[in-house]
Amino acid sequence: MNICVFLSAADLDERYTEPARHFAGLLGKRGHTLVWGGSDVGLMKVVADGVQEHGGRLVGVSVTFLADKARAGADEMVVARDLAERKAELLGRSDAVVIMVGGTGTLDEATEILELKKHGLHTKPVVLLNSAGYYDGLREQFRRMEAEGFLPLPLTELMFFADDPVAAMTYLEAGPDAAVR
């Protein structure tokens, strides 16, 4: 599977890097390909290192203004002209999406992917990896959106909240019968 991971390029605390490293190891060991923002810094580097160390492939999609931070040792690296093109490339090259901890850029990517899914423009599974409870507030917000009629489909069809890397990978590997695609 080509698994797109949206995540921070910041250097983060171990409570976030350890689950990311664990997920990267699972991804690599199980023969999947990481499709990610291409950066060789921060949490993006942690995940790319883990995937590569465990035999997985790396497909990066950088953007012109961040090309100097792109990972030199990726199996493939695309440089998009802007963030919109980058998001389209990331989604187009992936079979599934995992959202890890991040800031406004990660939140932007996540909401766009969810909006496209909401409108039926893709059916790929989306997993939100809730490391150290980082997305507890967002989970509550989505539950409220669903309860108050803001989501045209059940939250369980829009995304899966995983509290640990094993749950995230189990959901993705369960296939179309278990994961809503």
Rank of each mutant, 00 (worst) to 15 (best):
A67S: 15
P152D: 11
P165R: 09
V63Q: 10
F160N: 08
S39R: 09
D40I: 04
P152G: 15
L12H: 01
D40S: 08
R57H: 11
D136Y: 03
L34F: 06
L58C: 07
R30I: 01
V46L: 06
L172Q: 03
G31D: 06
N130S: 05
G92Q: 12
S39F: 04
V35E: 10
G120K: 01
D177G: 15
G137F: 01
H54L: 10
V97Y: 00
L129E: 10
L58S: 12
E18H: 01
A179Y: 03
H119P: 12
V5A: 06
R86H: 14
R15D: 01
A162G: 13
L129V: 09
A70Q: 08
V63T: 11
A9P: 12
L153N: 03
S39I: 03
E76N: 09
M159Y: 02
G50Q: 10
P19H: 07
R144D: 00
Y16W: 11
L91F: 02
G42D: 05
R93K: 15
A147E: 14
T156H: 14
G50Y: 10
A96R: 00
G149R: 00
L114E: 03
G31M: 03
K29N: 15
V35Y: 02
A70T: 13
G103D: 07
K118N: 10
D136K: 01
G42E: 11
A178I: 06
F150Q: 01
G92K: 01
D68F: 08
A80R: 12
V51A: 12
A67C: 04
M100E: 04
R15M: 10
L66I: 14
V46F: 06
S94D: 05
P152R: 15
P19G: 12
E89T: 00
V127R: 09
V61L: 03
M44F: 14
L121M: 12
L12V: 09
K29H: 08
P165M: 12
G50P: 06
V47H: 06
R81M: 05
R21T: 08
M100V: 05
L83N: 06
E115Y: 00
A72Y: 11
L129W: 00
I99L: 04
D75I: 04
D11F: 04
G105L: 08
Q52V: 11
V59P: 02
A132Q: 04
L91T: 10
M77R: 12
L128P: 11
G105E: 10
D108P: 06
V126F: 04
A9W: 11
N130W: 10
S8V: 05
A9C: 11
R30L: 08
F23K: 03
P19F: 12
A9V: 03
L7P: 11
F161K: 07
M159P: 01
E140G: 00
V41K: 13
A48C: 12
L27E: 05
K29I: 00
T104M: 13
T123M: 13
G133Q: 07
V166L: 00
L66Y: 12
E157H: 12
G50D: 13
R93D: 07
D40L: 02
A167G: 05
L90D: 07
G28R: 02
L12R: 04
E148I: 13
Q52K: 08
A174T: 11
D11V: 07
F6K: 14
E109A: 05
